[in-house]
Write a protein that binds this DNA or RNA. Sequence first.
DNA 1: ATTGACACCCAAAACGTTTTGGATTATACT
DNA 2: AGTATAATCCAAAACGTTTTGGGTGTCAAT
Lengths: 347, 347
Amino acid sequence: MWDVAVTLKDLARHVGVSITTASRALADYDDVAEETRQRVREAAEQLGYYPNITARRLQKRRNDTLGFIIPTADPRFADPFFSEFMAGIGNEAARKDYDLLVSTHSPDSPGEKAAYERATRGGWVDGLIVVRTRENDGRIQLLCQSNFPFVAFGRTDDDLNFPYVDEDSTAGMRLLVQHLIGLGHKRIGYLSPPAGLMFGTYRRCGYYETMAEYDLPVDESWVIEGDMTQRGGADAVGKLLNLDPPLTAIICGNDLMAIGTMNRLQNLGINVGRDIAVAGFDDIPWAAYTAPPLTTIRQPIYKIGQQTCSMLINIINGWEPENTHIMLTPELIVRESSGTRLGNGRR
Amino acid sequence: MWDVAVTLKDLARHVGVSITTASRALADYDDVAEETRQRVREAAEQLGYYPNITARRLQKRRNDTLGFIIPTADPRFADPFFSEFMAGIGNEAARKDYDLLVSTHSPDSPGEKAAYERATRGGWVDGLIVVRTRENDGRIQLLCQSNFPFVAFGRTDDDLNFPYVDEDSTAGMRLLVQHLIGLGHKRIGYLSPPAGLMFGTYRRCGYYETMAEYDLPVDESWVIEGDMTQRGGADAVGKLLNLDPPLTAIICGNDLMAIGTMNRLQNLGINVGRDIAVAGFDDIPWAAYTAPPLTTIRQPIYKIGQQTCSMLINIINGWEPENTHIMLTPELIVRESSGTRLGNGRR
DNA sequence: ATTGACACCCAAAACGTTTTGGATTATACT
DNA sequence: AGTATAATCCAAAACGTTTTGGGTGTCAAT
């Protein structure tokens, strides 16, 4: 194919030294004479020696590689969550000299299962990062029982004890609901992420809990489920708009749906921020640039990615972190889409 | 660490057969008896045998892994181009049973150079995908001279012959300029991607060429350089707005800058689509949801990713593709940001 | 009885490292 | 002179596969 590589054997022969010595010279062992080390170094440089990573990995029985299996039904994932998260783990991994292997699989698909099985056996990667935890999450169960190193972004409903980083979605949603209530809203709809996703569950809880806390009744019809895409948000508008009396605010389980929702509302001639309040969740970069800009909850996804990755590397190396259950508190970002205080003249 | 893996040796001993036979049984060679094959299969299942991928790779001298080194100055790349492109190569790679190794490095940084050197030697990956080709692109030069398998998205200005997929940016820009000229615009500004990026060069050429073609003079001050981000787009507005007589349209070298531009214009109370036309380039998903929706040029990034990846895999396997220079023609997407025909009452 | 064809099996080499467990030599100390 | 100590070095094993180059036994045809 291309240039055959120069191996340690070639190098050793060229210098007139054993393979062992060559290897140890390059690895800075102190049982090789300074002068020999130099000679080996120079020869390596000159011959363009580059260690074969695969051989090294086989011998060391570690890959210095992390796996990230992106759970997305749409292979063409437009969700900025994934890219930002990946940037976080990728950079942290690189900083610690780890490679990052990524692939995508539909949640709960056979392909996903196979990918996890391949990862836990066969020395494919040294550890895995799991995102978008689900109810009764098969991935977590598999990883726990095979005792494979991993860190999840998100908790689960099993009572398995595993390392995770998570944001307190319930608290985030509480902030959002309180904000709207503070503006005078009482009839607040909720467009939920699909059932089964843990973060959706927590966000939904936050919504229900806070409404209850303020003695605001919630009708079944106010809460519907979307698919986390703009289209999903747009499609939900029809149902959410047909209520009588109408909602005065809609909270969306993520920003993408909020954007779709706003867009559809505007196409129907409804002024978001004045006629109705809309809020999202995530604070993706896009959220600051919508018209009107989107009120939302900020999660530091990039940083969460970094932390998750860093924790995983610690675990792989046996440096058990002091705290393997990290919980972050999200922050309310108020922009124009949630409008100002409801006037008396409005319902 | 965790469960020690069961190896081929264990399996062979358990079945009472040689390692060779066990290996060949699992690989479906026809020189092993059907009955033996069955026994090996069952034992493998029962013992939970899983081949060690690293050992296999060492022996086969191939990794079945592709590398993708993302060239981004901002580690926290928000550019949807990368995620969509990666989705394309990732899914194509998975379909063909290849793994995808990703990392990010600043363009032209020492780290990037090191990453490419590591990749070409040492059997890290079997092939590389290169994006955002640059003028006098060191990556391409290195890969060409070390004869390492790769495919680029984008051409270069060297006269190296290498496999690439590219879109005809010049033609795309021509469509855009013609569209605006057709609406009556004569004073059209251009916010260019940074110098050095090949696609920026082609787009800029398309702009200049088409203006010249229609005998429209272009003043130096109409063309400035941005950094491809929303902020860059916003920052450019100041300079582009200070002209006398003013511009009637601004073309941005990518959608992200167009979004920033529109946003800033609107904050200044200028109505995009009526007072001034704005257009972008890329048609990122976001572009359809801006207010007003963005006129732009569509590139099928996901598909380009797939094609690039597919070509690379062919090259790695020695099936030289018939055509290693694929050129795609982009498509004009007219939305409201470019407005309607310029009235007589306007300049 | 020999030969050839066939079906099935396996020992050993190979892939390119790192690690183990000494071996060799020179130097310093009794 | 003998012995510990330190400084260098290296042959061989190991990592877990796949591939090479046979070997053995059976059966049918000569």
